[in-house]
């Protein structure tokens, strides 16, 4: 009799917790093409630091994670159109974007820089004048180059992968890009041989924004607060540091 009671209570408990877990479904919108943050394995599965952080946030909130893929230049419209609930795709927090959406607290930050052929003697000064710079369409790096360097020719690409293709092909002289993405997606691979970072590291918020955050619709205050709590938790329990070490050779977390 006692064991029957225990089985029943266990069952009740199990259904109760699974019901709670199913209550909250968070759909993350993302663009896969940005190693090591978000990319696809050869089997076509999404992986990377962003994916693991997203899943860790869901775990913290006992929510179910769903991932929705979206091209970068449509990623904010997709959020506003409710195709997903949050943008978790290494999106830089900027004032321009905050006119349209709201961000969580930053969960990491990375400097930007120029990548080009090392033997060309390029620097981020007047040696760049007249050169062709490839950038990811719709990125803060693109806006920065378009607005601040009228002396260069800007070419915009659908994904960063295509920028690397054209940099190796010699169609462009350099790319202005997130340094870690450059390291992992290009410089660390055999295609990146002979290429490297040049010029200074751009860590000014006007250039790279104030860190990387999760984007939300302005009205979704509750979800944003919950995710802020979860980000704090994965920092405190060491999950962030472990994931950081797994994907990036140096610490990129917030202070």
């Amino acid at each position: 009799m006692k064991s029957v009671k225990m089985v029943i209570s266990a069952l009740v408990l199990a259904t109760a917790t699974s019901a709670a877990a199913e209550d909250l479904v968070i759909r993350w919108g993302t663009e896969a093409g940005y190693r090591p943050f978000i990319y696809k394995t050869s089997e076509g599965e999404l992986t990377g630091l962003d994916v693991e952080i997203g899943n860790a946030i869901c775990e913290e909130l006992q929510a179910k994670c769903e991932w929705v893929e979206q091209d970068w230049d449509g990623i904010i419209p997709g959020l506003l159109g409710k195709r997903y609930d949050g943008i978790l795709s290494s999106m830089t927090i900027t004032e321009e974007r905050r006119r349209v959406i709201e961000f969580s607290d930053p969960y990491y930050a990375t400097p930007a820089g120029f990548v080009g052929k090392l033997d060309m003697g390029l620097n981020d000064d007047e040696t760049l004048a007249g050169k062709t710079i490839g950038v990811l369409r719709g990125s803060t790096h693109a806006s920065f180059i378009i607005n601040e360097r009228p002396d260069v020719t800007v070419r915009e690409y659908p994904t960063q992968d295509e920028v690397w293709l054209d940099l190796t092909a010699g169609r462009i002289d350099a790319s202005f890009v997130n340094q870690i993405a450059a390291q992992e997606g290009f410089l660390g691979t055999e295609n990146g041989e002979g290429f490297g970072l040049f010029g200074k590291s751009y860590i000014d918020p006007a250039v790279t924004g104030s860190g990387i955050g999760v984007g939300f619709r302005k009205a979704d205050v509750e979800l944003r607060e919950k995710v802020n709590g979860a980000i704090k938790a994965i920092y405190e329990n060491g999950t962030f540091r472990a994931l950081n070490e797994k994907y990036v050779p140096f610490y990129i977390g917030m202070e």
Binding site: D73, I76, P77, L80, E96, R97, R99, V100, G134, R137, G138, S139, A142, S143, I146, N147, R155, E156, Y157, P158, D166
Partner: peptide, 21 residues
């Protein structure tokens, strides 16, 4: 899609520069 600023490219550049849809 191959980086030419044609008519659509101009529209996309405006969208990405000012974060409008």
């Amino acid at each position: 899609t191959i980086t030419i600023v044609d008519l659509l490219g101009a529209g996309r550049r405006l969208n990405s520069q000012y974060y409008v849809t």
